[in-house]
Amino acid sequence: MAVSKSTAPPRSILTVLSDAFTGIFDVVFGSIQKIIGDKNMAYIFVLPNLLIFSVFILLPFFLNFGYAFTGSDNFLLADRPFVGTDNFAQLFDCESFLEPNSCREDLFWRGVFNTAGYVFFQVGWMVGISLLTAVILNRDIRGRGFFRSVFFYPVLLSPIVVALMWKWILQENGLINGVLETLTLDRIRFLTTASWARFWVIAISVWAYMGFYTLILLAGLQGIPAQLYEAAEIDGATGWQAFRRITLPLLSPTMLVVVVLALIRAVQVFDIAFAFTRGGPGTATFTMVQFIYEIGFSGDRRQGIAAAASIAMAVVLIIATLIQLRVNREDES
């Protein structure tokens, strides 16, 4: 066996450990292989992942329907009476879908509207700013690695840390208000004014995640051959034309990935808004996921409603994914 043993004399503890690990598993897997045959080893390899996947992802996915069609505040499915589509009917019981106050589950619809507004603005700003940053980083600049890391750094911070950090900056006696005061302007109650709180939840999340999308777009930009721009220059194309006719079309597959990823993530907005304002002031930054959490786990524990709401959210996510696949396919053909 040529591959198994390295002949290099100095062996670190790590190599010894990994060799021991490989050896032990080799004995176990080897004897299984003798019994079931080479080809069937695939089942053994896929088994651990499949088992965890089935129990903790697939099973809950189907159980969700069980909850959505049953009532009461009991967590055990067997003890919950079947109520048919009552939960959905209750969720969608509105006199006017444009007016959350007219709905029986007005909190859910506030969550829906807040989330929709957030998705619309956040994805737009995110893609725009990421693209601008990626274009700038793609230029022949000094210290590109450094600046790339600078824009990426907040991606690593946890939503709770991000929210607390900005809460500290934006609070009444915070840095921004300090600057306003120094400029002899009035202080602003950023955290307790509905429109400002909404604005900042969007701005903070763009700040936190844009580095990730910038990296993906930058990789896409770097994949565009430089000769195309040289040819365009010879043909006398203006910069805007080159950007529109070369960069944007060739970048569109990457753009699509970015838009869909940003969209899917935006629909699930929760952590930052929750830690920042706890959904407030009032319900100004109350999101769909917070509705699922609060209805299902705190207070009245109506899991049926929570499950129905989460299925409604899943439908939105699935539609977004399908659109992506559709556009992708058209792109390829």
Partner: peptide, 18 residues
């Protein structure tokens, strides 16, 4: 299931863990 986040299965996954 690539796009199913934990927030969608929050209630049932809680039961499974219980």
């Amino acid at each position: 299931t690539l796009m199913i986040p934990v927030s969608v299965v929050l209630v049932p996954i809680y039961t499974v863990i219980l």
